[in-house]
Design a protein around this nucleic acid. Sequence first.
DNA 1: GTTTTTCATAACTTCAAATTATGACAATGA
DNA 2: TCATTGTCATAATTTGAAGTTATGAAAAAC
Lengths: 299, 299
Amino acid sequence: MKNLTLKQLRYFEALSRHGHFGRAAEVCSISQPALSVQIKELEQGLGTPLFERGPRHVRLTAFGEDWALRVREILRAVDDLGDMARAAQDGLSGRLRLGVIPTIAPYLLPGLIAHLDRTHAELDLHVRETMTPRLIEELARGQIDAAIVALPLNEPGFEEVPLFDEPLMLVRPETEKDRPVPTPEGLRDLRLLLLEEGHCFRDQALSFCQFGAGATRDGLDGTSLSTLVQMVGSGIGVTLIPQMAVPVETRSAPVCVGQFAEPQPRRTVGMIWRKTNPLRGQLRQVADIVLEVGRSLPR
Amino acid sequence: MKNLTLKQLRYFEALSRHGHFGRAAEVCSISQPALSVQIKELEQGLGTPLFERGPRHVRLTAFGEDWALRVREILRAVDDLGDMARAAQDGLSGRLRLGVIPTIAPYLLPGLIAHLDRTHAELDLHVRETMTPRLIEELARGQIDAAIVALPLNEPGFEEVPLFDEPLMLVRPETEKDRPVPTPEGLRDLRLLLLEEGHCFRDQALSFCQFGAGATRDGLDGTSLSTLVQMVGSGIGVTLIPQMAVPVETRSAPVCVGQFAEPQPRRTVGMIWRKTNPLRGQLRQVADIVLEVGRSLPR
DNA sequence: GTTTTTCATAACTTCAAATTATGACAATGA
DNA sequence: TCATTGTCATAATTTGAAGTTATGAAAAAC
């Protein structure tokens, strides 16, 4: 196994994830035969098959699975090597791939992008908006450099930097403006509209209302905070949104916003990245900027 | 930094260690210009110099130093990939590079090699004999797979397996056969012959005699246990040798062997390897065999 | 000032790794 | 059942990266 190449490892990794020679080859920007040959040479060099070619699927062998784990680590480390050069010439520049969860992105990003444009024009910011578990996965894989999420997560291997926290606000139809803000228990008797499964914000809201695992909830699920607020506006129920969403979301619907009594529900917004990411110096700078932007959001 | 290759990393590593293009190229089995070009491309790809070319030396830049640390880790991990295939088809086979310290090698190896030849002819055993610190270094670098040394070492990242322990014996001129074996304190008044600096066995012997750091010792240093025993035989002084060395070393010199009173000085012989070495399954098997061979040594 | 050491550059060569074209084989569907 | 489709392997050819030898340039050593 003297003439192993990084290309082969990259091809292997692609094939292991796609389970299909054609598609993996496309991802690698090479032809399918080229991939076939390289995989074959890899297997010959090792003396063991890595894939099990079925008529309708290509799957990793048991050994291949073990191998893939190490290969992914290596590829990540190699990609980090490239980033180190940028990290060395510190100052924010180059490509930076940032993931943001959907309940933060629309409110924080406009300010963040404007700020970065003004102060760090050299920075080539790529933003990816998706939910927390996906972001964690992409961070681990090195597909993004950092993510802005709700903390804490306690993922091993990741550095978490809490930035600021903010209360969750109650959104009711405007007609209920003068009625008192209910307690968490009182909330349970209202029709509570929440984001669909998978959003961490949904879980934060649920935990405030202390819905147990088994408790049924008479509510509807929306795909975005914006949708939820519109639904509230049409009198279907009530919902919770984070404070940063208030100015944007409550402008265009007949709703009113209420603050809960202490202890208020809150969420902590922060950044995470892989502990070993060589860009961590840069990322700390970005975190400072995110904090600044977060603090200056309209209340 | 998309077209980084493993070859480049290997060349980089070689150059970083030799500090000389010509010699590094030779180690890599390529011509000097080939190495020059690859290093240049590496530096161009990164946009940062990795080496500082002085008129009489090639040294890593500060950034290069950081880089080298990661590169070495990567290369080690890559080399491990190859070993995994062998590890998978368990059973002892293929190349196994074993380091042994000089105060164990001559006594244990004949039996070990004979045993392995008999029971595992498939195994291609390479033995390297040198002192502990060097072995540790080579283990870390992946140049050897395991080492037989005196424990404990407590090196982070290494797995230590104690195998057996044995007493250290006193070797005196034959003429002193009937005199009582001295105590550790009594030893200090004799001319004690020891191995030269660097041998861990020297330190074990010294610690038994409780020579402090500052204490001067009226002794001579030898380069091997064999030399020491010959010197004892010619009446120059006394020495300590491990029990396993007794049959071999005391045969050809007019010396006598004495056992100390309890608490006897002892040393523990064991094996170590990198915790992440994929061959650890195989190495455990080898350890069992070493134990067996060790136990069956003539007393 | 000549020689030596050492790295860089240039011109040419070689071989690994692409490409395109095609084959084999099983599953799918009329 | 037999053509059709999807999918991976093989073959022939081309391309280009990485190697070689030859040589240059610059500083150090004698």
